[in-house]
């Protein structure tokens, strides 16, 4: 009989904390967000001509040769599917992974007219989320000759654009230097 009472108490406790921690707590955080931090709480969306073109935090496919390309992505069948985030989960000695990396390396060598040892690692590896919004500055600079050619711009103008959009390490030591591909391409689109 005593045991039955324990279960009844447990049930009431669980329902009580579900109300407070499961409903009220997220709603309070939501309310704080909508009042004070609306933009970031809603997804850091960016617009072009008043139309939302994406989130600055979520990477996109930029496959056309007139764009700065993002990293390879394992999210969804064609990459950057924001409803199926994830990594390749290939082991470091997996023959299939080596093969994939070689294929990507070769494609970049052809497209950018560079040698294999000029290609930074982030250009041929897929990220942990499949939604990596950034590339390394090295990979951005690697793409300037192609884009300059496609858009009839000078390489130095593109290098300046990349430098303008290169984010330093936070406080000088946290994380890595990087370029947000969507923001860079937005700036590229508005150069004309």
């Amino acid at each position: 009989m005593k045991n039955a009472r324990q279960y009844f108490t447990s049930l009431r406790l669980l329902l009580g904390i579900t109300l407070i921690l499961g409903i009220l707590y997220p709603l309070v955080i939501f309310a704080i967000g909508q009042v004070a931090l609306k933009e970031s709480a809603n997804g850091s969306f960016v617009t072009l001509d008043k139309k939302v073109v994406g989130s600055s935090l979520i990477g996109q496919n930029f496959l056309g040769s007139s764009w700065f390309h993002s990293r390879p992505s394992a999210a969804g069948a064609t990459g950057y599917d924001a409803l199926s985030s994830g990594a390749s989960n290939s082991g470091p000695n997996e023959p299939g992974l080596s093969q994939t990396l070689k294929t990507r390396q070769h494609a970049i060598m052809v497209e950018e007219g560079v040698t294999a040892n000029q290609i930074p690692a982030d250009a041929i590896t897929s990220s942990g989320s499949g939604l990596d919004p950034d590339i390394s500055p090295a990979y951005a600079h690697l793409q300037t000759a192609r884009i300059a050619n496609q858009r009839h711009l000078t390489i130095s103008a593109l290098n300046a654009l990349i430098n303008l959009h290169t984010k330093p390490r936070t406080f000088g030591f946290l994380g890595e230097e990087r370029v947000n591909v969507l923001e860079l391409n937005l700036a590229l689109a508005s150069l004309h």
Binding site: F30, L37, G43, L48, L57, D81, A82, L83
Partner: peptide, 30 residues
């Protein structure tokens, strides 16, 4: 609150259908 200020989302929105810069479509979750 600190996480939210840095861009972690807190909303109850259905996936936001976005037409991307490179003429693609992306569904961004809430």
């Amino acid at each position: 609150v600190i996480l939210m200020a840095n861009g972690v989302i807190q909303n109850f929105a259905s996936p936001h259908v976005v037409h991307t810069l490179a003429a693609g479509v992306q569904n961004i979750p809430g």
